[in-house]
Amino acid sequence: RHRTIFTDEQLEALENLFQETKYPDVGTREQLARKVHLREEKVEVWFKNRRAKWRR
């Protein structure tokens, strides 16, 4: 597996949602994934990693 490289637009959308909710539900993740052309799984893992970074 290779590392996903997120575009600035994707990161902006992910960060904006993170400010709203640290734990978006699957529907919200799917909606964002469609909007920025990512797989929902990638969005889910990004949030998991972003929460870990936020806790540190």
Rank of each mutant, 00 (worst) to 15 (best):
R39E: 12
A52D: 09
E44W: 07
E30F: 07
R39D: 14
A33K: 01
T21G: 07
V45N: 13
I5P: 12
W54A: 12
F18W: 10
H2S: 14
L17N: 00
T21W: 06
L14F: 02
Q10A: 08
K48Y: 09
E15Y: 02
R34I: 12
A52N: 11
R51M: 03
R50D: 01
K35N: 03
H37T: 06
A33D: 04
A13E: 05
F6L: 14
I5Y: 05
F18R: 01
Q31W: 11
T4Q: 13
V43H: 00
T28N: 04
K53F: 06
D25V: 05
V45K: 13
E30P: 00
T21Y: 08
G27F: 15
Q31T: 13
P24V: 01
Q19I: 08
Q10G: 00
P24C: 03
E9H: 14
N16Y: 12
L14C: 03
T7W: 00
V36L: 12
V43N: 00
E15L: 02
R29W: 02
R34L: 05
K42D: 15
N16L: 09
R55K: 13
L38Y: 02
R51C: 04
A13W: 06
H2Q: 15
V36G: 02
D25P: 05
V36P: 00
F47N: 02
Q31M: 07
F18D: 00
K42E: 13
G27A: 14
V43P: 03
K22I: 07
K22C: 03
T4P: 11
F6A: 06
T4A: 09
K42H: 13
R29V: 12
T21N: 11
E9Q: 06
F6S: 06
T28R: 11
V36H: 02
Q10W: 01
H2W: 06
R50S: 03
R1I: 09
R39V: 13
F6W: 10
D25G: 07
Q10T: 01
F6R: 02
K35F: 03
V43A: 03
E12G: 10
A33V: 03
F18Q: 01
K35G: 06
E12Y: 05
R34F: 07
K48D: 02
R1N: 15
R29Y: 09
A13V: 06
F6M: 07
F47H: 03
R39G: 15
R39N: 15
K22R: 10
V26N: 12
N16W: 07
T28V: 14
Q19K: 08
L11G: 02
Q10D: 07
E44G: 06
A33H: 03
Y23R: 06
R39M: 15
R34V: 09
A33Q: 00
E30A: 11
R34S: 10
E12H: 04
W54Q: 10
V26G: 06
F6D: 05
T4V: 11
F18I: 06
K48R: 12
E41R: 05
E12V: 09
W54C: 08
Q31G: 10
K53Y: 04
E41Q: 04
E20S: 10
R3Q: 08
E44P: 02
R39Q: 15
D25T: 07
R39S: 15
R50P: 00
R55L: 13
T28W: 03
E12R: 09
A52I: 05
T28D: 04
R55H: 15
V26Y: 09
Q10V: 06
K53W: 11
K35L: 09
K53E: 15
K35V: 06
E30Q: 12
N49Q: 09
I5M: 14
N49L: 12
P24M: 01
P24R: 02
R1V: 10
V43W: 00
N49Y: 11
E44N: 06
H37D: 12
L38T: 05
F47L: 04
I5V: 10
